[in-house]
């Protein structure tokens, strides 16, 4: 992080005439403990908001349920990648070892080497390759899929401009409702956050 003082962060740096006017990104409510965060998350969930998030210094048990989060599709991506690995690995070893097509150019044709008296295409010998490709493709897709679903890496986030938000790594909890939410209405949303027992509500500009 850049070393800038809290004062500079609280008020955006002076802009020249050509810079775009900062638009409202979200309203951020600050909470002092886990219980009020969980209670607030349930209320925001029940109010029907969609584009919102909570931030805490540590993993909070039960937050998924309190936020009404749907299960991730990541396991299905992993399963698909695994099956693709099985299919791709099998095709690879079959094509390389067991095909010899005159129609293809020599560089694309397989090599039918007889090894140790085994059949040209022999499953036991090929399982290690199929297995490794399955593990490799599954782990790459799972890792990259996790990053993509989380929209990572994220080099900029409007919340980082808030000095108050810095305490999220220490002892404060935040509920952030984004302006892009169809239900978002600044006075109403502010009233909701204030009614949930937040110690402060802050406007976050993009």
């Amino acid at each position: 992080m850049m070393d800038r003082s809290a004062d500079n962060l609280a008020s955006p740096p002076a802009t020249d005439g050509n810079a775009p006017v900062p638009s409202l990104y979200a309203l951020m409510g600050e909470f002092e403990d886990v219980d009020s965060l969980l209670a607030a998350a349930e209320k925001v969930r029940d109010a029907g908001y969609r584009d919102w998030d909570v931030h805490a210094p540590f993993p909070v048990h039960g937050i998924d349920k309190a936020m009404g989060m749907r299960p991730t599709i990541l396991p299905w991506l992993s399963l698909g990648a695994g099956l693709a690995g099985v299919a791709g690995g099998t095709f690879l070893v079959w094509w390389i070892n067991a095909t010899s097509t005159a129609a293809l150019p020599a560089t694309l044709s397989g090599y039918q080497y007889l090894i140790s008296g085994k059949p040209i295409f022999s499953l036991p010998a090929n399982i290690p390759i199929i297995f490794e490709l399955t593990v490799l493709i599954t782990s790459i897709v799972t890792f990259l899929g996790m990053l993509a679903l989380n929209r990572l890496p994220m080099l900029y986030h409007p919340l980082f401009k808030s000095a108050r938000f810095r305490r999220v790594t220490d002892d404060r909890f935040f509920v952030v409702i984004e302006a892009s939410d169809p239900q978002f209405d600044e006075p109403k949303t502010r009233a909701l956050l204030e009614g949930l027992g937040s110690t402060a509500v802050e406007r976050i500009e993009d």
């Binding site: 140790s116 036991p124 010998a125 399982i127 290690p128």
Partner: peptide, 12 residues
């Protein structure tokens, strides 16, 4: 189980 089987199968 496969590790044991494959080496025996391969060496024959």
């Amino acid at each position: 189980a496969f590790s044991q089987y494959m080496l025996i199968w391969y060496g024959n």
